[in-house]
Structure formats: structure tokens, C-alpha cells
Simulated scan of single mutants.
Amino acid sequence: MKVNIKRVAEEAGVSTATVSRVINGSDRVKEETRKKVLRVIKKLGYKPMPALRKIADLNYTIGVLVPNLVGDHYNEMVMAIEDYASKNGFELIVSIPKMLPESERYVLDQFFKRKIDGVILCELYTGVTYLEPFLKSGVPIVALDYNIEDITCDSVNVNNKQGAFIAMNHLYENGHRKILFIRGPHLSPAALEREKGVLKFLKKHDDVEVFYSEFEGYEPEIGYESVIAHLEKYGKNFTAIFTINDWTATGALSALYEKGLKVPEDISLVGFDDAPYVKYIVPPLTTIKQPRWEMGQTAAQLLIERIQNKGSNIPKNVILQPQLIVRKSVKKIG
């Protein structure tokens, strides 16, 4: 059934004139009636003409919480969310708490006070207890690139565990049996899943030895410092490096060249993410591609469907598959 002003009036139990007055911001409507009509408008997903949607109460707003916008990973997902949201008449508020729990708590509090219609979370370090006000008030939440085990909500993730397994297997197929793994932050669910992929691979291949980096993180300096520290302590006892993401791979690449080692002639290198720039570095980086645009669009679609009360009430867990992108940073040996 088409949603129009008549259907809104019937659902709210008022006249079409009353609905019209609410839309136009008239003060000739009781506050209780106004709130009831606005609830019905949001419930049915009714969109008055653009000129009439200047009323703040009729603006649908999505809150997006991301750890940072450094690099390209979250940038692309946020752009995908904004693209889908704007095409469906939704506005976006993006907050960047920089992986600081106190900042996350403040952002979530502000989201709730501003009566955000829905929230997309990309990792949360403060703990899921701070999501309870949203859950109790019926505000839908979608976890993006973040697996929340303690609450039931829609989620969109890439199969990080399988991606890491694929990366390790590619090195194995090219003869590499001694591999340095540069780890991600232990508080990051995505990093932990990728490390599980490495462990899954090792269970199937007992002829492979993996050395774990002394440092952990997603930044280039982590890749650089990890390689320097390992070479100075143990020498070149590995033939390949698998990094937690492409950004750390650039740091590892710099450290190798500083130590007189070339990629892939001396050391092979595999990253994770398929950042836009890695096809242009020397050598072009072999990596695991994450479908970031598809992840962002899917998260926005799920959230908007929840806000508009469309589809099943059963939470959806969407798992997108990673893809190996072979370039020129891996050499076949042995």
C-alpha cells in the first residue's frame, strides 16, 4: 500500500488536516497529538515533500561511530553509508572517538540525547553495556566490520579468518615455510579474527613456522619497527611477511629496503585490505581485498530497513568473502 497523508492520518487516528498541520509545524496541535503523528510518520516511512521536511522532528538521522578515518578503510565504508543514506532521505552524523573508551561513551550519550534514528558501529572499545539505552528504546544498531557477541543486532563483516588463511596459503603454495606475521592490536576483533586464520592454517601445515612480531598495530610504524626489531634480534630467518593490513605492509617494505633486502627478490610480502594505493607502490602489493563499499552499503540498507520496520525481526548476520589479489610482491621459491 502506498504511504500517503491519508494513511498516516488513519494510522494515527486523526484527520488529514491534523497531519498537515504537524508537517507544517503549526502550533495549533496538542503536543501529545504531534508526537503521535510524528511516530506514525517515521514508522510508515512517509516522506513529505522536501520543502516540508525542514522540520527537525521529521529528519531521519543515522549516527556512525568509527575508530578513525586514517588511511582508506573506514573512509570508503563511511562514503558508502552516506551514498546509500542520502539516496533514501537520511542524514549522517559521523563521530571519531579514536579508540578512546571515554570518547566513545560521550559520543553514544550524544547520539542518544539527539534521538538518533539508528546507529552503525565500527568497533567499540568501551563495552556493549553502553548500548543498552538504544536497545531499550528500540533504536536499531548495525555492527559494521565488528562482531558483537553479547547483543543481538544486525551485522556486516568480512570473513577475516578466511582472508588470513588465504594469504598464508598463497605464501605456502609459493614455497614459503618461515613467515613473519605482523600482528594487529589485541583489542581489535578484526585483528583477532585474522590471527585465528593464521592459527587455523598452522593446524593444517605443521611444516610451517610463524614468527610473531614484537609490536602490534595497524600503522606503518608498527610494520617498520617490527621488521627492524626482528632482523636485529634473529637475523633473516624468514622468507616472507604477512601483515595485518596494507598500511603496516608499507612500513615493513621501508624497513626491508633500509636493511638492504628487496621485495620480492629477498623477502615476499602480503598485506590485507587492498587499499587504493597498493597497486602503485614498488612492487605492487599482493593483498587480501575487503569489499568495503559493499560492506558500507549493506550496513546502511539493513539499518534503514530496521528504522522503517521493513522485513523480518530476526537479526541478520551478513558475512562477505575476501578475495586474494595477486600482484608482484610474492616470489615463488624452492
Rank of each mutant, 00 (worst) to 15 (best):
A275F: 02
K331I: 08
V282M: 11
R39F: 02
A85I: 04
Y74K: 04
A229G: 07
K2P: 03
A240Y: 06
N160H: 10
K316N: 10
V270S: 12
G197Y: 07
H186S: 14
T248H: 09
R306H: 05
Q290Y: 04
V66G: 06
I148P: 08
Y74E: 06
A85F: 01
F238I: 03
K178A: 03
P276L: 09
V158P: 10
K30L: 03
Y146K: 12
I281Y: 12
L52V: 07
I325P: 02
V70Q: 11
Y218I: 10
V270F: 00
K35P: 01
E258D: 14
T126G: 00
E193K: 15
G89C: 08
L69E: 04
V64K: 06
Q308V: 00
K196T: 13
M99R: 15
F112L: 11
E10M: 06
I151Q: 12
A300R: 08
K316G: 04
E91V: 03
A255I: 10
L269W: 08
S20Y: 05
E149G: 05
A51I: 01
I93F: 05
S26C: 05
Y60L: 05
V278Q: 06
G63R: 09
D109W: 05
H186M: 14
L324H: 03
D72I: 00
R53C: 12
E31M: 02
P48M: 10
L187S: 14
L253F: 12
I93M: 12
T18F: 04
H176T: 08
V19F: 03
Y125M: 13
P48H: 01
G71H: 12
S268Q: 02
N147H: 13
P97F: 07
I23D: 06
T286F: 03
D57E: 15
P133K: 04
R53P: 03
Y212P: 03
P284N: 01
W247Y: 08
K178R: 09
T298H: 05
R194F: 13
Y277C: 07
I62L: 13
N157D: 10
E31C: 01
V94Q: 13
K2E: 14
L285D: 02
Y280I: 00
L135E: 03
S155R: 11
D57Q: 06
V19A: 04
P291R: 00
D274K: 00
K200D: 15
I62R: 00
D57C: 00
P140V: 05
S137G: 03
G311E: 10
F112R: 05
L269F: 02
R39S: 14
T243L: 09
A190C: 13
L65A: 08
S226D: 13
L324M: 12
G118K: 09
N237A: 09
D27F: 06
D206K: 15
R183N: 13
L52Y: 12
K30E: 00
Y84T: 01
G63I: 03
V78N: 01
A56W: 00
P283K: 07
H186R: 15
E209Y: 01
R114P: 03
E149S: 15
Q308G: 01
E91L: 14
K42L: 01
A275T: 04
D266N: 15
E10V: 06
N169E: 11
K115V: 08
Y224I: 13
K35Y: 11
N237P: 10
